[in-house]
Amino acid sequence: MDRLDSMRIFVAVAETGGFATAARRLVLSPPAVTRAVAAVEDRVGARLLHRTTRIVRLTEAGARFLEDCRRILAEVEEAEAAAAGLHAEPRGQVSITAPVLFGRLHVAPILFDVGIRHPLMVVRSFFIDRVVNLAEEGYDVAVRIAELPDSGLSAIRVGTVRRVVCASPAYLAAHGVPQTPADLADHDAIPFGQGVAARDWVFRRGDRTETVTPRARLIVNQADVAVAAAVAGHGLTRVLSYQMAADHRAGRLQTVLEDFEPPPIPIHVVHQEGRRATARVRALVDLVAAGLRADPALR
């Protein structure tokens, strides 16, 4: 068995978390998979996997080797495609991660078109409300809603979202429209987020910032629950603009205190490889970036 085949087997074991599952994916016998991984470990001179009766986990050396194997195998696939005159048509599996609600509302509709534009590509999506480590968790592309720290990731800015305070027209008619953050003392609030910090709402006007802790009647950890509670008239909530955009357009929610909003939050599409990205990664990045830039809700 050559080195590339051994790498493919190691990657399958790492991704599936077991020798038997990797064997089924590759249509090989479990002993063949075990021997191939053992040969790789002998060749590199390091333990790549922690094995127990229930689970297989990557060692630190194994995590680094997995990243290198994926890159090498992708480059080999690209080279073979180029030699066969197929470089212009992206092919193979590519993966993307994004926050849950943003992914469902704004990323998924773009992904639906990938199969039409690039029928040889397979896209794997992973929508979750945490920052996914692309290298460690094996994902190619991510959508991040944040100011990005310095890193080795390539980033394309595609839009912005606002942090808005909103309530139903009926609630505002009954309780009045707050004109300044200090007015929130007379209102019910529906904080969204984790921990005590979720109850602190930071506002800004010019160079001045002001932190207000409104009276909380309900504290939730999901944006759609906060939005639903506000639509039902239970108070004011503070969410990202895309999270309440549909209800705002339908007239079910009204924004307040716009003059005191903090600066908009940028949206980026990020990936690891920069100019060395494979054709399928470049194709996915281009499609997602173009789709998000064209989205009027993200301007």
Score class of each variant (00 low, 15 high):
V13H: 10
G18Q: 06
V27N: 14
P31T: 11
V33N: 09
V40L: 15
E41N: 05
R43A: 12
V44S: 04
H50T: 08
E60T: 11
F65E: 07
L66T: 04
I72D: 12
L73D: 13
A79Q: 14
A79V: 11
E80R: 15
A81P: 06
A84L: 15
A84V: 08
L86M: 15
H87I: 14
E89K: 11
P90C: 11
G92F: 07
S95Q: 08
I96K: 03
P99N: 06
H106F: 06
V107M: 03
L111P: 03
D113Y: 07
V122D: 13
F127A: 07
I128K: 02
L134H: 01
L134D: 01
G138T: 04
D140K: 00
V143M: 02
E147W: 05
D150R: 12
S151Q: 04
V158T: 10
V161D: 00
R162F: 00
R163A: 05
A174F: 06
H175T: 14
A189I: 02
P191W: 00
G195V: 07
V202A: 11
R204Y: 01
R204K: 14
R204W: 02
R205W: 04
G206A: 05
R208I: 10
T209N: 05
V220P: 09
A223I: 01
D224F: 03
V225N: 03
A230D: 04
V231Q: 05
A232M: 08
G235Y: 06
T237I: 05
M244Y: 00
A245T: 04
A246H: 07
R249I: 01
T255R: 15
P262L: 10
H271M: 07
Q272H: 11
A277G: 11
R282S: 14
V288W: 04
R293H: 05
